[in-house]
Amino acid sequence: MTAGRSWPATLFLSLFGLAFIYPLLWLVAASLKPNADVFTTIGLIPSHIEWSSYKQGWVGIGRVTFTQFFLNTVKLVVPVVALTALSSAVVAYGFARFRFPLKKTLFSLMIATLMLPDAVIMIPRYILYRNFGWLNSYWPFYIPALLAVHAFFIFLLVQFFRGIPRELDEAAEIDGCGSFRTLTRVLLPLCVPALISVCIFQFIWTWNEFFNTLIYINSVSKFPVALGLRMVLDNEGAVNWNQVLAMCVVTIVPCVAVFFAAQKHFVEGIATTGLKG
């Protein structure tokens, strides 16, 4: 395209982008404004910066502070991400490189679970975890991650494995590598970009997870930030708006940071698999 044709488009896209991102900018700005200004001013520059909203918001509810909510979230998210990457890679390797009975059927079933609405299995899963004594713990998050229940990640990695020439595995095998060593020494190092995508997706999804934490976690001392934020909203939402907004910012920041740190993988990850939104 010629430069002359593209500047109106650039202008339009910029204005439009600004409009779309404005709510988030406003969120950050309003969290720093004095409480009385939250609704009365719409500009982005606070009349004076008020850090107290963060300090008071951080105190949380009762004796549980956001420090605790953050620690809980880390305890929840980090194992889930690690287990997901591990199990999905192993399973994807099985599907991508081996022949076994019923492989086609099993692969189709795996793909079919991508489209299975969670709503229809949510209640028996809850009852199952309850019978295992896992309510109010993080096991309902760890175990599905360990068992690669998120078929999306398996699919993503299978696609990636298929793009790696088989000659590499064969060469490794001739050199005396067992199949597991072939995976860890040859294939996984080549899969790092795909594994990063898996980790980032799972990090952001688990970090933002609301419904499952709502039904599985019920003591405040085990709340992740999502539930902590909801409690702040219920308690302070009617009065101390800037505190609520400050805690919104705090819960969003890690996700946005991770996204920016690895956005190249992130956007390419979804683009190459053609999945999920």
């Binding site: 076994f100 299975l116 199952l128 599905p144 078929a151």
Partner: peptide, 16 residues
């Protein structure tokens, strides 16, 4: 091959 996919298979049978 079945061994490698077994985590998913167990997860599928028990949790799905």
């Amino acid at each position: 091959g079945l061994l490698y996919i077994s985590p998913w298979l167990i997860g599928f049978l028990v949790l799905t």
